[in-house]
Design a binder for these strands. Sequence first.
RNA 1: GGACGGGUGGGUGAGUGGCUAAAACCAGCAGACUGUAAAUCUGCCGCUCCUUGCGGGCUACGAAGGUUCGAAUCCUUCCCCGUCCA
Length: 424
Amino acid sequence: MKTELKFKPVDEQLAYLKKGVSEIVPEAELRTKLGKSLKTGKPLRVKLGVDPTAPDIHLGHTVVIRKLKHFQEMGHTAVFLIGDFTAMVGDPTGQSETRPPLTREQVNENAQTYLEQVFRILDRRKTEVRYNSEWLDKLSSYDIVRLCAKYRVARMLEREDFRTRLGNQQPISVHEFLYPLLVAYDSVVLEADVELGATEQKFNLLIGREIQREYNQEQQIAVMMPILVGLDGQRKMSKSLGNYVGITEPPQEMFGKMMSIPDELMWSYYELVTDRTPQEIAVLKQEVANGKLHPMDAKMRLAEEVVSGFQGDDAARKAADNFQRVFRDRQAPAEMQERRLRRRPDGSLVTETQHISASPKWPQLLKYLSEVESISDGARIVEQGGLEVNGKIIKDPTARLNTQNDGTYEVRIGKKKFLRIVIE
RNA sequence: GGACGGGUGGGUGAGUGGCUAAAACCAGCAGACUGUAAAUCUGCCGCUCCUUGCGGGCUACGAAGGUUCGAAUCCUUCCCCGUCCA
């Protein structure tokens, strides 16, 4: 009896896997490996290492995770490596200065939330999850010295961020040299056939190849994805720059953020964070170019697709409707976040965490509700006409919450924030 | 170990005794315009209090002390970074 072919033909696989990819080093070798796995029926081990340096993942992280998913869909083994050890070392990539190291507790907490979020994309049952502390914790000083002996300082200094820091008279700590070596060692332990990473990881991925060779192992293929540009259209998406879309954000928020990207950027988003084929994307682009499709509509489709990928079709549909309503028709959203305040017998108000006077000034109230950064910030917004309460703009920062009202206030802060304050 | 240079607000970076909550630029925020895009224009941009006044208080120029009516600016000690020499 004939066994069913476990893998698709090499060319078909390659075509699928190459979507959106920025570089494969070396591509010919990937073809060879795919061929071999097809023949032997043995899946490739595809490594993606992530350092849990923050509790949430955002759209930028998903680019490379999606690529891992593609390999998974082709029947290969997705090895999702959590760099719980390396997160404490700190990756110098793209850093203009030494990163403050994280504690083990922070790292562990982050790792948990990461995983939950990652499985919104990857198939949980088919993913091999590993933690590099598993082996890195056990290395002796001797092992580490041996590992260091396998690489040269001159090569290390070739790396751009080291070079520029050196040139700018900025500090580089010795331990930062260790990071790429440890990551490379992970590949040795995991016997990775392929390692995924963003283009900025090229250096690390290539060291992986060299170190594997030193350990007499078959070398991994480096598959690199472009960096997702953030909402500002300028810099890489990152939490610290605030130009990101978190994948657990409420649908409306996500939708709104997606709509705020510059038009030209949407094509790269289509390519990197949706399942559209390159052909489909080309058609859309064409339609926008010749005026058949309004850029805003194209962007709305993108936003809806992205939101539905994480929050489901219904939520995405709703978010899109809401966007129409609020920003095209300039109405208050159908559903507003509601904040409740309780009035105590003595007249003062309480939130979940604090006491407020009986009729607070708006800037203060907003600060207590954490809707503005500080009271000064709130006052600023009010003075500049950014506050609307029950359809009326309030410009006087000393204006107070008037108590004669029925206890419900529909509030708009700036262009994007809406909430309903209910006093009970 | 020695010589020299440096540490200013989210970032770059001016300021060398009062006019400095600290130039300028970037980022950010609000408003106008719009498609919550981009570009542009206007304003704001430490925190806080009130009776919102060119009002009061507090905090801030690596840290701690000191000099002075007054310090980011002067002195002392310490910490940190870089360059060169060994």
